[in-house]
Design a protein around this nucleic acid. Structure first.
Lengths: 192, 192
DNA sequence: TTTATAAATGAAATAATATTCATTTATATT
DNA sequence: AATATAAATGAATATTATTTCATTTATAAA
């Protein structure tokens, strides 16, 4: 008996993700997807009942993958300002390195494929947790403005998301990012 | 001779906008759009060559409309800082009041309809020009950081977009917005 | 009024895309 | 090596959406 190549499922997911981030959810065609994934059109339908199921399972697949570790390379004994710098750089780098994640979520919730959600808020909180804690610590030390931490995190993430988005759709690489200027604006904005 | 009802164009635009914010760009069907706008399918094609042209003109329509909205109540003889304050407040208020604007822009740039051509770039420059000039003027006066104006505008818009998104998502009204804190972070971030 | 002209209509033609299925291919088991 | 079984294929078909166009309708001008 021929063995089902289970790796194909994630190949289809990853290919679909990349295509969606380039052409939008509206631009994803099943035949193109199959071509891009180097499989036959019909093969996609062995793994997924139809396009609807593919998109919904892709959403669940991504949810599991998005627990990213923004704290990597973060030394506990480093000053708070540097911690935030590393954290924001990690966040931005990951956002640019994996534009397809943000692109998909952004579009999924406004698409006809979206049925219902509640998990996403929890996932976001898990992902943003380390940043959130640092802000509160900075406020205790009177280094950071005494503004609602949720608002501060929103503002910083908003800046980073926007920069990542621009970097993606203008197709300018990560090497064109003006890291120093971005962090200066962030830091001057949030410091006391 | 029968007179062309020019109001239909904006009726089509506004109907399309609301539909896109509900179903996504992928969910917008020409026949449904016509039905929703209470006109015949063919009538849409009198005003727009095809769906592509409709979406691209919708983008330009929104670009002009939103910029007009943002500039209201802007007095020439007011200090630069206040001008920016009014502009950012207008931007945030309009973004919350009209979630469909952000929804469209968010999707357009990732859709197959988005193409950079000279005409569109010129329009964008015309529309965004006054905002960039404000930043450049501030840089000449050494009030604003000497950072690429496009990056500065991105960062500020990113903050405002994120706050607007959260406000829409959590359904907390515009009255809950902490305007002063937001502008403090923005201003401290961009000032020299 | 009547006429000329362009707007508006919506069913039908065209085009694009999703899905199926008869056939071929690969492999685990005997 | 032969067989059985399910995976994989991709052209054919079904479905859905876009666009056209012959016809009808409204209005400005004669």
């Amino acid at each position: 008996m021929r063995i089902k190549d289970e790796s194909k499922e994630s190949i289809i997911f990853e290919t679909a993700l990349l295509m969606i981030s380039k052409t939008g959810l509206s631009g994803l065609k099943m035949s193109q997807l199959a071509k891009e994934a180097n499989i036959a059109t019909g093969t996609v339908y062995i793994y997924f009942k139809d396009k609807d199921e593919l998109i919904r399972k892709l959403y669940l697949y991504l949810l599991k993958k998005t627990t990213l570790d923004y704290s990597k390379g973060l030394d506990e004994n480093v000053p708070l300002k540097l911690k935030i710098k590393i954290l924001t750089f990690n966040y931005l780098a990951e956002s640019i390195l994996h534009p397809e994640y943000g692109a998909f979520f952004e579009q999924y919730f406004r698409s006809p494929f979206f049925v219902e959600n509640e998990m996403i808020k929890n996932e976001e909180n898990t992902v943003l947790g380390p940043i959130y804690e640092l802000v509160i610590e900075g406020q205790k030390q009177a280094i950071i403005k005494n503004i609602n931490p949720e608002l501060l995190v929103s503002l910083v993430c908003g800046m980073l998301n926007e920069v990542a988005k621009e970097s993606i759709y203008t197709q300018s690489g990560i090497e064109k990012i003006d890291w120093e200027s971005i962090f200066t604006v962030i830091w001057d904005g949030i410091k006391s």
